[in-house]
Design a protein around this nucleic acid. Structure first.
Length: 522
RNA sequence: GGGCUUGUAGCUCAGCGGUAGAGCAGCGGCCUUUUAAGCCGUUGGUCGAGGGUUCGAAUCCCUCCGGGCCCA
């Protein structure tokens, strides 16, 4: 047991001293600011009277004068306080300041001997006392020394990350801007933004396990939605011809660099459109978002370290550019599989043919280490998608639409008239990762019922991700849904792509973290 | 779920079988244009948790709890 006071105790003492002097920082409600830090630095006018407030991020006291940097989150500006130019109370308060406190300052703009634009204080007031130390590093020439880098702390205590790490802050703000720009794109193209239920009796629209919860008043179990699809199409059936929703969906799956149990989905549906309409929308949407958030259709991307073996070459080779101003490449799924595996459409015509073509042996992509075990595959569609994932996806670096997905894995997509085993569905890929999933929607209620029944069969065979029956949805189709194109985009993944983030947690303000022993409730 | 890896002071890290360390932060002193301020002095740790091996464990072994990367 130490008798030394902790940092927190010392700061509490300083707070008490401020109160004894007659100033309680927590009693302050407002401080009028004439400018932001960035505004002051940009439109700097020497001698101008200004009022500013910010968090103390550096603090230097030199006897009878002191310097500090104040940050308003976006930018930081230096203040200069002299004992003989402020009141005795103000000087005593300056002495009790710690890094992390919020302070208000009024004064004149001036330039220091070393050329830094600063505020020469005539008034100074603590606005908030930070009781805990902040992991703020020291900064020189834009380089931060011993700041906060522990990723676990960054995710668990995101406010510290936002305070201490400019890059994290920028990425998270850009993620918000991406969502906002997506919304603007659809709003300005005749779409209606809607909200549909999160609590559902049967979670449909995708293949995933739902979270289950209980509704006390009705004494029944309900599920959290896993997609937005079926309700949005019911709106199309209700003659709302272009609708979209941006909303949280929940999938009861593990956490990985691309999965969080809750994530943000965009889905949009357009009556009298097909999958080509959706391709156009995806291209336009990415283009307008890139322009709105990054000011250019060309986005610079840094690939994860380790994707290039040679450390020295890594810096250059890891940098690539993507141009969302150009149309996306369009390829056919079966043709791409044949190109990369040699398996023909004939080989992939039945599950038995496919397994014998693969000699029913474990197949490994030598470059990625990803593998396929044919014996684990129950149907042809699953195997085809696995081939796509293992052998084709890694090759899809440039924005690419892959068209023509197997019917078994596409229970909501129209059949391809040219090949009834395939559907009019595509997925968009960038940098080897899926970014969207779209199709010409089934509007034939008879067909849709058959597809659901096939899914129920899969469910009976043990596939707990198979799609459940939804009678209300089918009833809506029976009342007449126009031909419709629909598309879903995982906005977290879109934000990851555009911000160059390699982990979904980097674009989530508060990613799900397992509780630690200390943080878990008793 | 499997493999590899990681957890040491408020922060960033070193130590890898023989008395727990550094820088920064903190605290005390000096300093009226500093800026990774400086100079002098100084405090601070159940080495993630629990068990084991050992005369002796931060260090080796086992279990558990977090995190990271890869595979599923």
């Amino acid at each position: 047991m130490s008798t030394e006071p902790s940092i927190r105790e010392i700061r509490l003492q300083k707070l008490a001293q401020m109160r004894e002097l007659g100033h309680d920082p927590f009693s302050i409600e407002k401080w009028e600011r004439t400018d932001t830090a960035a505004g002051l630095l940009e439109g700097f006018e020497e001698g101008k009277d200004v009022s500013f407030a910010g968090r103390v991020v550096s603090y230097r006291l030199m006897g009878k004068a002191g310097f500090a940097h104040l940050s308003d989150g976006d930018a930081r500006i230096q203040i200069y306080v002299r004992k003989d130019e402020v009141t005795e109370l103000e000087w005593s308060l300056y002495d009790l300041i710690d890094i992390g406190d919020h302070v208000g300052v009024k004064g004149k703009l001036f330039v220091t001997k070393t050329g830094e634009k600063s505020i020469h204080a005539t008034e100074f007031l603590p606005l908030t006392k930070a009781l805990e130390p902040l992991p703020l590093g020291k900064e020189k020439d834009g380089q931060v020394f011993s700041g906060l880098s522990d990723v676990e702390t960054r995710y668990r205590h995101r406010h510290l990350d936002l305070i201490a790490n400019r890059e994290s802050r920028t990425v998270l703000i850009n993620r918000a801007k991406v969502v906002s720009a997506v919304r603007r794109y659809f709003d300005s193209n005749g779409y209606l933004e809607v909200e549909t239920p999160l609590l559902q009796l049967e979670a449909g629209g995708a293949a995933a396990r739902p979270f289950k919860t209980h509704y006390n008043a009705y004494e029944m179990d309900v599920k959290l939605r896993i997609s937005l699809e079926l309700y949005l199409k019911r709106l199309i059936c209700g003659d709302l011809p272009a609708v979209y929703e941006i909303g949280r969906v929940f999938r009861n799956e593990g956490v990985s660099n691309r999965h969080n149990p809750e994530f943000t989905m965009l889905e949009f549906y357009e009556a009298y459109g097909n999958l080509e309409t959706m391709m156009m929308r995806v291209e336009e949407c990415f283009k307008s978002v890139a322009l709105a958030v990054f000011g250019s259709t060309v986005v610079d991307i840094t690939l994860p370290t380790g994707s290039v073996d040679d450390e020295d070459a890594a810096t250059d080779a890891n940098q690539i550019q993507l141009d969302f101003g150009k149309p996306w490449r369009r390829v056919h799924l079966l043709e791409e599989i044949e190109r990369h595996t040699g398996l023909s459409a004939e080989d992939l015509s039945t599950l038995e043919n496919a397994k014998s073509a693969l000699a029913d042996k474990l197949v490994v992509n030598p470059i990625t280490g990803k593998r396929i075990d044919p014996s684990e595959e129950r149907n042809l569609g699953g195997l085809i998608e696995k081939l796509l994932e293992v052998f084709v996806e890694p090759t899809l670096q440039e924005p690419t639409f892959v068209v023509g997905y197997p019917i078994e894995t596409s229970p909501l997509a129209k059949k391809d008239p040219a090949n009834p085993k395939m559907t009019r569905r595509f997925e968009g890929y960038v940098l080897g990762r899926e970014v969207c999933n779209a199709f010409s929607e089934i509007n034939d209620p008879i067909d849709q019922r058959e597809r659901f029944e096939q899914q129920l069969g899969e469910r009976e065979k043990g596939d707990d991700e198979a799609h459940p029956m939804d009678e209300e949805f089918i009833y809506a189709l029976e009342c007449g849904m126009p031909p419709t194109g629909g598309c879903g985009i995982g906005l977290d993944r879109m934000a990851m792509l555009l911000t160059g983030s390699h982990h979904i947690r980097e674009v989530l303000l508060f990613p799900f973290m397992r509780p630690t022993a200390e943080s878990s409730p008793e």
